[in-house]
Design a protein around this nucleic acid. Structure first.
Lengths: 193, 193
DNA sequence: TTTATATTTGACCGTTCGTTCTAATTGGTT
DNA sequence: AACCAATTAGAACGAACGGTCAAATATAAA
Protein backbone atom coordinates (compact mmCIF):
# COMPACT_ATOMS: atom_id res chain seq x y z
CA UNK A 1 0.00 0.00 0.00
CA UNK A 2 1.23 3.48 -0.82
CA UNK A 3 3.01 5.05 -3.73
CA UNK A 4 5.42 2.85 -5.72
CA UNK A 5 9.12 3.67 -6.19
CA UNK A 6 9.94 5.39 -9.46
CA UNK A 7 13.48 3.98 -9.64
CA UNK A 8 15.14 0.60 -9.40
CA UNK A 9 16.95 0.37 -6.06
CA UNK A 10 19.38 -2.23 -7.40
CA UNK A 11 20.39 -0.04 -10.33
CA UNK A 12 20.69 2.96 -8.02
CA UNK A 13 22.89 1.01 -5.62
CA UNK A 14 25.08 0.01 -8.53
CA UNK A 15 25.52 3.67 -9.44
CA UNK A 16 26.41 4.50 -5.85
CA UNK A 17 28.91 1.68 -5.87
CA UNK A 18 30.60 2.99 -9.00
CA UNK A 19 30.95 6.47 -7.52
CA UNK A 20 32.24 5.29 -4.14
CA UNK A 21 34.58 2.93 -5.91
CA UNK A 22 36.01 5.70 -8.04
CA UNK A 23 36.33 8.42 -5.40
CA UNK A 24 36.37 6.68 -2.04
CA UNK A 25 34.15 7.32 0.94
CA UNK A 26 35.07 10.78 2.22
CA UNK A 27 35.57 12.36 -1.18
CA UNK A 28 32.07 11.36 -2.31
CA UNK A 29 29.30 13.65 -1.08
CA UNK A 30 25.62 12.90 -0.78
CA UNK A 31 25.00 15.62 -3.36
CA UNK A 32 27.37 13.86 -5.76
CA UNK A 33 25.41 10.66 -5.23
CA UNK A 34 22.02 12.29 -5.75
CA UNK A 35 23.22 13.77 -8.99
CA UNK A 36 24.66 10.46 -10.19
CA UNK A 37 21.69 8.31 -9.18
CA UNK A 38 19.23 10.82 -10.56
CA UNK A 39 16.90 10.51 -7.58
CA UNK A 40 15.76 12.89 -4.87
CA UNK A 41 17.52 13.43 -1.61
CA UNK A 42 14.69 12.06 0.51
CA UNK A 43 14.41 8.98 -1.71
CA UNK A 44 18.05 8.19 -1.16
CA UNK A 45 17.74 8.45 2.60
CA UNK A 46 14.47 6.52 2.71
CA UNK A 47 15.81 3.68 0.60
CA UNK A 48 19.38 3.26 1.79
CA UNK A 49 19.70 5.13 5.08
CA UNK A 50 22.59 7.55 5.56
CA UNK A 51 25.92 7.83 3.82
CA UNK A 52 27.75 5.21 5.83
CA UNK A 53 24.96 2.70 5.51
CA UNK A 54 24.88 3.28 1.77
CA UNK A 55 28.61 2.73 1.53
CA UNK A 56 28.40 -0.55 3.39
CA UNK A 57 25.61 -1.73 1.10
CA UNK A 58 27.65 -0.72 -1.93
CA UNK A 59 30.72 -2.56 -0.69
CA UNK A 60 28.64 -5.64 0.05
CA UNK A 61 27.21 -5.50 -3.45
CA UNK A 62 30.71 -5.10 -4.89
CA UNK A 63 31.78 -8.36 -3.32
CA UNK A 64 28.61 -10.30 -3.90
CA UNK A 65 28.19 -9.44 -7.56
CA UNK A 66 31.77 -10.36 -8.49
CA UNK A 67 31.46 -13.35 -10.83
CA UNK A 68 33.15 -15.71 -10.69
CA UNK A 69 34.14 -15.11 -7.10
CA UNK A 70 37.61 -16.12 -5.93
CA UNK A 71 36.03 -18.91 -3.92
CA UNK A 72 34.22 -20.18 -7.00
CA UNK A 73 37.39 -20.12 -9.05
CA UNK A 74 39.24 -22.06 -6.39
CA UNK A 75 36.58 -24.70 -5.87
CA UNK A 76 36.56 -25.94 -9.44
CA UNK A 77 36.75 -29.74 -9.50
CA UNK A 78 39.82 -31.49 -10.83
CA UNK A 79 43.41 -30.32 -10.41
CA UNK A 80 43.77 -27.52 -7.91
CA UNK A 81 46.91 -25.71 -9.03
CA UNK A 82 45.45 -24.54 -12.34
CA UNK A 83 42.62 -22.96 -10.35
CA UNK A 84 45.12 -21.10 -8.19
CA UNK A 85 46.91 -19.92 -11.30
CA UNK A 86 43.60 -18.88 -12.81
CA UNK A 87 42.82 -16.84 -9.72
CA UNK A 88 46.09 -14.96 -9.89
CA UNK A 89 45.64 -14.40 -13.60
CA UNK A 90 42.13 -13.08 -13.04
CA UNK A 91 43.55 -10.51 -10.64
CA UNK A 92 46.13 -9.50 -13.23
CA UNK A 93 43.45 -9.31 -15.90
CA UNK A 94 41.24 -7.15 -13.67
CA UNK A 95 44.20 -4.90 -13.00
CA UNK A 96 45.35 -4.35 -16.55
CA UNK A 97 41.84 -3.85 -17.93
CA UNK A 98 40.95 -1.32 -15.24
CA UNK A 99 41.27 1.74 -17.47
CA UNK A 100 39.77 4.07 -14.87
CA UNK A 101 42.34 2.69 -12.43
CA UNK A 102 39.81 2.43 -9.64
CA UNK A 103 41.64 -0.56 -8.22
CA UNK A 104 39.81 -2.96 -5.94
CA UNK A 105 37.07 -1.41 -3.85
CA UNK A 106 37.95 -3.62 -0.88
CA UNK A 107 41.57 -2.51 -1.02
CA UNK A 108 40.47 1.12 -1.25
CA UNK A 109 38.10 0.68 1.67
CA UNK A 110 40.78 -1.03 3.73
CA UNK A 111 43.35 1.70 3.15
CA UNK A 112 40.96 4.58 3.71
CA UNK A 113 38.84 3.35 6.60
CA UNK A 114 40.80 0.73 8.52
CA UNK A 115 41.18 0.48 11.40
CA UNK A 116 39.01 3.43 12.48
CA UNK A 117 35.78 2.14 10.98
CA UNK A 118 34.86 -1.04 12.83
CA UNK A 119 32.15 -2.18 10.49
CA UNK A 120 34.28 -1.79 7.38
CA UNK A 121 37.23 -3.40 9.16
CA UNK A 122 35.19 -6.49 10.01
CA UNK A 123 33.92 -6.63 6.47
CA UNK A 124 37.34 -6.41 4.86
CA UNK A 125 38.87 -8.91 7.22
CA UNK A 126 36.06 -11.38 6.61
CA UNK A 127 36.64 -11.04 2.88
CA UNK A 128 40.36 -11.58 3.17
CA UNK A 129 39.88 -14.49 5.54
CA UNK A 130 37.51 -16.12 3.06
CA UNK A 131 40.05 -15.84 0.27
CA UNK A 132 42.86 -17.14 2.47
CA UNK A 133 40.73 -20.07 3.56
CA UNK A 134 39.76 -20.94 0.01
CA UNK A 135 43.38 -20.74 -1.08
CA UNK A 136 44.46 -22.91 1.83
CA UNK A 137 42.00 -25.64 0.98
CA UNK A 138 42.86 -25.50 -2.72
CA UNK A 139 46.56 -25.84 -1.94
CA UNK A 140 45.89 -28.58 0.58
CA UNK A 141 43.96 -30.41 -2.08
CA UNK A 142 46.80 -29.84 -4.54
CA UNK A 143 49.25 -31.38 -2.11
CA UNK A 144 46.98 -34.35 -1.48
CA UNK A 145 46.68 -34.89 -5.24
CA UNK A 146 50.42 -34.83 -5.72
CA UNK A 147 50.43 -31.51 -7.56
CA UNK A 148 52.59 -30.10 -4.79
CA UNK A 149 55.48 -31.68 -2.85
CA UNK A 150 54.48 -32.99 0.57
CA UNK A 151 56.81 -30.62 2.42
CA UNK A 152 54.99 -27.47 1.34
CA UNK A 153 52.89 -25.48 3.80
CA UNK A 154 49.52 -24.74 2.17
CA UNK A 155 48.44 -22.19 4.76
CA UNK A 156 51.67 -20.22 4.54
CA UNK A 157 51.44 -20.27 0.76
CA UNK A 158 47.84 -19.11 0.93
CA UNK A 159 48.82 -16.24 3.21
CA UNK A 160 51.55 -15.28 0.81
CA UNK A 161 49.22 -15.30 -2.16
CA UNK A 162 46.59 -13.27 -0.33
CA UNK A 163 49.13 -10.56 0.47
CA UNK A 164 50.49 -10.60 -3.04
CA UNK A 165 47.07 -10.31 -4.65
CA UNK A 166 46.10 -7.31 -2.53
CA UNK A 167 49.43 -5.73 -3.42
CA UNK A 168 48.69 -6.29 -7.09
CA UNK A 169 45.40 -4.46 -6.88
CA UNK A 170 47.00 -1.63 -4.97
CA UNK A 171 49.98 -1.14 -7.27
CA UNK A 172 47.67 -1.31 -10.28
CA UNK A 173 46.24 2.07 -9.26
CA UNK A 174 49.47 3.49 -10.60
CA UNK A 175 49.94 4.10 -14.30
CA UNK A 176 52.68 1.56 -14.58
CA UNK A 177 53.46 -0.71 -17.44
CA UNK A 178 51.21 -3.81 -17.52
CA UNK A 179 54.44 -5.77 -17.84
CA UNK A 180 55.23 -4.88 -14.26
CA UNK A 181 52.14 -6.75 -13.07
CA UNK A 182 52.69 -9.67 -15.43
CA UNK A 183 56.28 -10.04 -14.29
CA UNK A 184 55.28 -9.85 -10.66
CA UNK A 185 52.54 -12.44 -11.07
CA UNK A 186 54.77 -14.83 -12.97
CA UNK A 187 57.31 -14.70 -10.17
CA UNK A 188 54.63 -15.15 -7.53
CA UNK A 189 53.29 -18.20 -9.33
CA UNK A 190 56.75 -19.70 -9.52
CA UNK A 191 56.42 -20.72 -5.88
CA UNK A 192 53.89 -23.29 -7.03
CA UNK A 193 56.52 -25.16 -9.03
CA UNK B 1 63.49 41.36 10.27
CA UNK B 2 60.04 40.90 11.68
CA UNK B 3 58.54 38.80 14.43
CA UNK B 4 60.05 35.34 14.97
CA UNK B 5 58.02 32.13 14.79
CA UNK B 6 56.86 30.79 18.13
CA UNK B 7 56.83 27.17 16.99
CA UNK B 8 59.20 24.79 15.27
CA UNK B 9 57.98 24.22 11.71
CA UNK B 10 59.67 20.83 11.52
CA UNK B 11 58.00 19.61 14.69
CA UNK B 12 54.67 20.99 13.50
CA UNK B 13 55.04 19.25 10.16
CA UNK B 14 55.78 16.03 11.99
CA UNK B 15 52.52 16.40 13.94
CA UNK B 16 50.62 17.04 10.72
CA UNK B 17 52.24 13.97 9.23
CA UNK B 18 51.11 11.81 12.14
CA UNK B 19 47.52 13.00 11.86
CA UNK B 20 47.32 12.62 8.08
CA UNK B 21 48.97 9.23 8.38
CA UNK B 22 46.41 8.08 10.92
CA UNK B 23 43.26 9.46 9.34
CA UNK B 24 44.02 10.02 5.67
CA UNK B 25 43.61 13.19 3.66
CA UNK B 26 39.89 13.80 3.42
CA UNK B 27 39.05 12.71 6.93
CA UNK B 28 41.52 15.18 8.44
CA UNK B 29 40.24 18.75 8.69
CA UNK B 30 42.26 21.91 9.03
CA UNK B 31 40.62 22.40 12.42
CA UNK B 32 41.86 18.98 13.49
CA UNK B 33 45.34 19.96 12.41
CA UNK B 34 45.28 23.31 14.18
CA UNK B 35 44.23 21.61 17.38
CA UNK B 36 46.93 18.95 17.05
CA UNK B 37 49.76 21.30 16.10
CA UNK B 38 48.76 23.80 18.76
CA UNK B 39 49.25 26.77 16.46
CA UNK B 40 46.93 29.39 15.00
CA UNK B 41 45.05 29.02 11.79
CA UNK B 42 46.83 31.83 9.99
CA UNK B 43 50.22 30.51 11.12
CA UNK B 44 49.45 27.18 9.54
CA UNK B 45 48.46 28.76 6.23
CA UNK B 46 51.41 31.16 6.26
CA UNK B 47 53.92 28.42 6.95
CA UNK B 48 52.67 25.50 4.90
CA UNK B 49 50.12 26.83 2.44
CA UNK B 50 46.74 25.14 2.11
CA UNK B 51 45.64 21.66 3.06
CA UNK B 52 46.82 19.91 -0.06
CA UNK B 53 50.21 21.56 0.05
CA UNK B 54 50.58 20.57 3.68
CA UNK B 55 49.70 16.99 2.86
CA UNK B 56 52.30 16.82 0.13
CA UNK B 57 54.94 18.22 2.48
CA UNK B 58 53.95 15.69 5.14
CA UNK B 59 54.16 12.82 2.68
CA UNK B 60 57.53 14.02 1.48
CA UNK B 61 58.76 14.18 5.06
CA UNK B 62 57.39 10.69 5.69
CA UNK B 63 59.56 9.29 2.94
CA UNK B 64 62.64 11.37 3.56
CA UNK B 65 62.87 10.78 7.29
CA UNK B 66 62.55 7.02 7.02
CA UNK B 67 65.88 5.63 8.26
CA UNK B 68 67.32 3.47 6.95
CA UNK B 69 65.58 3.94 3.63
CA UNK B 70 64.90 0.92 1.43
CA UNK B 71 67.55 2.17 -0.97
CA UNK B 72 70.07 2.41 1.85
CA UNK B 73 69.30 -1.09 3.03
CA UNK B 74 69.74 -2.43 -0.48
CA UNK B 75 73.00 -0.68 -1.22
CA UNK B 76 74.92 -2.18 1.64
CA UNK B 77 78.26 -3.49 0.38
CA UNK B 78 78.97 -7.20 0.32
CA UNK B 79 76.49 -9.94 -0.51
CA UNK B 80 73.25 -8.60 -1.95
CA UNK B 81 70.72 -11.27 -1.06
CA UNK B 82 70.96 -10.70 2.70
CA UNK B 83 70.17 -7.05 2.06
CA UNK B 84 67.06 -8.02 0.12
CA UNK B 85 66.03 -10.30 2.95
CA UNK B 86 66.71 -7.54 5.44
CA UNK B 87 64.47 -5.21 3.46
CA UNK B 88 61.57 -7.65 3.49
CA UNK B 89 62.09 -8.31 7.17
CA UNK B 90 62.11 -4.60 7.90
CA UNK B 91 58.70 -4.31 6.23
CA UNK B 92 57.43 -7.18 8.34
CA UNK B 93 58.87 -5.60 11.47
CA UNK B 94 57.27 -2.25 10.65
CA UNK B 95 53.96 -4.02 10.10
CA UNK B 96 53.85 -6.07 13.27
CA UNK B 97 55.04 -3.24 15.50
CA UNK B 98 52.50 -0.81 14.08
CA UNK B 99 50.16 -0.94 17.06
CA UNK B 100 48.01 1.95 15.80
CA UNK B 101 47.72 0.06 12.50
CA UNK B 102 48.28 3.17 10.45
CA UNK B 103 49.93 1.13 7.73
CA UNK B 104 52.28 2.81 5.28
CA UNK B 105 51.43 6.42 4.50
CA UNK B 106 52.43 5.97 0.85
CA UNK B 107 50.09 3.00 0.52
CA UNK B 108 47.30 4.97 2.18
CA UNK B 109 47.92 7.93 -0.11
CA UNK B 110 47.96 5.70 -3.16
CA UNK B 111 44.68 4.01 -2.32
CA UNK B 112 42.87 7.19 -1.35
CA UNK B 113 44.12 9.67 -3.91
CA UNK B 114 45.29 7.81 -6.98
CA UNK B 115 44.70 8.30 -9.79
CA UNK B 116 42.62 11.47 -9.29
CA UNK B 117 45.35 13.51 -7.62
CA UNK B 118 48.12 14.00 -10.16
CA UNK B 119 50.71 15.33 -7.76
CA UNK B 120 50.27 12.51 -5.26
CA UNK B 121 50.19 9.99 -8.10
CA UNK B 122 53.53 11.19 -9.43
CA UNK B 123 54.97 11.10 -5.96
CA UNK B 124 53.84 7.57 -5.18
CA UNK B 125 54.97 6.26 -8.53
CA UNK B 126 58.38 7.85 -8.14
CA UNK B 127 58.70 6.19 -4.74
CA UNK B 128 57.72 2.80 -6.05
CA UNK B 129 59.97 3.15 -9.05
CA UNK B 130 62.91 3.98 -6.79
CA UNK B 131 62.32 0.85 -4.72
CA UNK B 132 61.92 -1.30 -7.81
CA UNK B 133 65.11 0.10 -9.28
CA UNK B 134 67.08 -0.45 -6.09
CA UNK B 135 65.76 -4.01 -5.87
CA UNK B 136 66.63 -4.64 -9.48
CA UNK B 137 70.20 -3.52 -9.06
CA UNK B 138 70.61 -5.48 -5.81
CA UNK B 139 69.32 -8.63 -7.49
CA UNK B 140 71.46 -8.01 -10.55
CA UNK B 141 74.45 -7.70 -8.28
CA UNK B 142 73.42 -10.89 -6.50
CA UNK B 143 73.32 -12.73 -9.78
CA UNK B 144 76.70 -11.37 -10.82
CA UNK B 145 78.16 -12.49 -7.50
CA UNK B 146 76.80 -16.00 -7.91
CA UNK B 147 74.24 -15.66 -5.12
CA UNK B 148 71.52 -16.25 -7.68
CA UNK B 149 71.41 -18.66 -10.66
CA UNK B 150 72.18 -17.02 -13.98
CA UNK B 151 68.74 -17.79 -15.44
CA UNK B 152 66.86 -15.59 -12.99
CA UNK B 153 65.29 -12.30 -14.10
CA UNK B 154 66.28 -9.59 -11.59
CA UNK B 155 63.80 -7.03 -12.87
CA UNK B 156 60.88 -9.42 -12.75
CA UNK B 157 61.86 -10.48 -9.25
CA UNK B 158 62.15 -6.85 -8.19
CA UNK B 159 58.69 -6.13 -9.57
CA UNK B 160 57.35 -9.08 -7.68
CA UNK B 161 58.93 -7.99 -4.42
CA UNK B 162 57.67 -4.44 -4.82
CA UNK B 163 54.11 -5.65 -5.24
CA UNK B 164 54.43 -8.05 -2.37
CA UNK B 165 55.83 -5.43 0.00
CA UNK B 166 53.03 -2.99 -0.73
CA UNK B 167 50.54 -5.80 -0.15
CA UNK B 168 52.16 -6.52 3.20
CA UNK B 169 51.73 -2.95 4.37
CA UNK B 170 48.13 -2.92 3.20
CA UNK B 171 47.10 -6.20 4.79
CA UNK B 172 48.81 -5.19 8.00
CA UNK B 173 46.09 -2.58 8.51
CA UNK B 174 43.88 -5.50 9.46
CA UNK B 175 44.00 -6.97 12.95
CA UNK B 176 45.34 -10.25 11.72
CA UNK B 177 47.74 -12.59 13.44
CA UNK B 178 51.38 -11.50 12.99
CA UNK B 179 52.01 -15.08 11.90
CA UNK B 180 50.08 -14.33 8.73
CA UNK B 181 52.66 -11.73 7.73
CA UNK B 182 55.60 -13.85 8.79
CA UNK B 183 54.32 -16.79 6.81
CA UNK B 184 53.70 -14.65 3.77
CA UNK B 185 57.15 -13.08 3.92
CA UNK B 186 58.87 -16.42 4.37
CA UNK B 187 57.17 -17.72 1.26
CA UNK B 188 57.98 -14.59 -0.71
CA UNK B 189 61.64 -14.87 0.25
CA UNK B 190 61.71 -18.47 -0.89
CA UNK B 191 61.91 -17.27 -4.48
CA UNK B 192 65.45 -16.14 -3.69
CA UNK B 193 66.57 -19.73 -3.10
C1' DT C 1 64.45 54.27 19.86
C1' DT C 2 62.35 54.14 15.86
C1' DT C 3 60.91 51.66 11.90
C1' DA C 4 59.77 48.05 8.99
C1' DT C 5 58.27 43.42 8.58
C1' DA C 6 56.68 38.85 10.03
C1' DT C 7 53.72 36.34 13.11
C1' DT C 8 49.72 35.73 16.01
C1' DT C 9 45.00 35.91 17.34
C1' DG C 10 40.41 35.15 16.51
C1' DA C 11 36.60 36.70 14.11
C1' DC C 12 34.76 36.06 9.77
C1' DC C 13 33.93 34.68 4.74
C1' DG C 14 30.99 31.99 1.56
C1' DT C 15 30.38 27.15 0.56
C1' DT C 16 29.43 22.61 1.30
C1' DC C 17 28.58 18.95 4.45
C1' DG C 18 25.10 15.12 6.02
C1' DT C 19 20.57 15.11 7.46
C1' DT C 20 15.65 16.36 8.33
C1' DC C 21 11.24 18.27 7.34
C1' DT C 22 7.05 19.83 5.00
C1' DA C 23 3.92 19.42 1.55
C1' DA C 24 2.44 17.72 -2.61
C1' DT C 25 1.88 13.51 -5.28
C1' DT C 26 0.99 8.89 -6.40
C1' DG C 27 -1.03 4.20 -6.54
C1' DG C 28 -2.77 -0.02 -4.20
C1' DT C 29 -6.44 -1.26 -1.11
C1' DT C 30 -11.07 -0.90 0.71
C1' DA D 1 -14.64 6.77 -5.41
C1' DA D 2 -12.44 7.38 -1.15
C1' DC D 3 -8.70 6.56 1.68
C1' DC D 4 -4.28 5.44 3.39
C1' DA D 5 0.45 5.06 3.21
C1' DA D 6 4.70 5.32 0.81
C1' DT D 7 7.34 8.32 -2.28
C1' DT D 8 8.46 12.51 -4.19
C1' DA D 9 10.66 17.31 -4.79
C1' DG D 10 12.88 20.77 -2.73
C1' DA D 11 13.49 24.01 0.92
C1' DA D 12 15.72 24.29 5.12
C1' DC D 13 18.67 22.84 9.12
C1' DG D 14 22.81 23.55 12.05
C1' DA D 15 27.39 22.21 11.80
C1' DA D 16 31.64 21.91 9.69
C1' DC D 17 34.41 22.81 5.76
C1' DG D 18 38.82 25.29 3.67
C1' DG D 19 40.42 29.69 3.49
C1' DT D 20 40.99 34.93 4.38
C1' DC D 21 41.47 39.24 6.86
C1' DA D 22 42.30 43.18 10.10
C1' DA D 23 44.27 44.33 14.11
C1' DA D 24 47.42 43.51 17.72
C1' DT D 25 52.01 41.95 18.79
C1' DA D 26 56.81 41.02 18.66
C1' DT D 27 61.44 41.25 16.75
C1' DA D 28 65.61 42.39 14.00
C1' DA D 29 67.71 46.06 11.53
C1' DA D 30 68.51 51.01 11.10
Amino acid sequence: MGRTKEFDPEAALQEALELFWERGYEATSMSDLIERLGIGRASLYATFGGKHELYVKALRRYIETRRPSPVEILSQPGPALPAVRALVESYVADSVTDVLRRGCMVVNAAAEMMPADDEIARFVEANWAAIETALTSALTRARAQGELPADRDPRAMARFLLVFLQGLRLVSKGSSDPARLHDAAAQALSILD
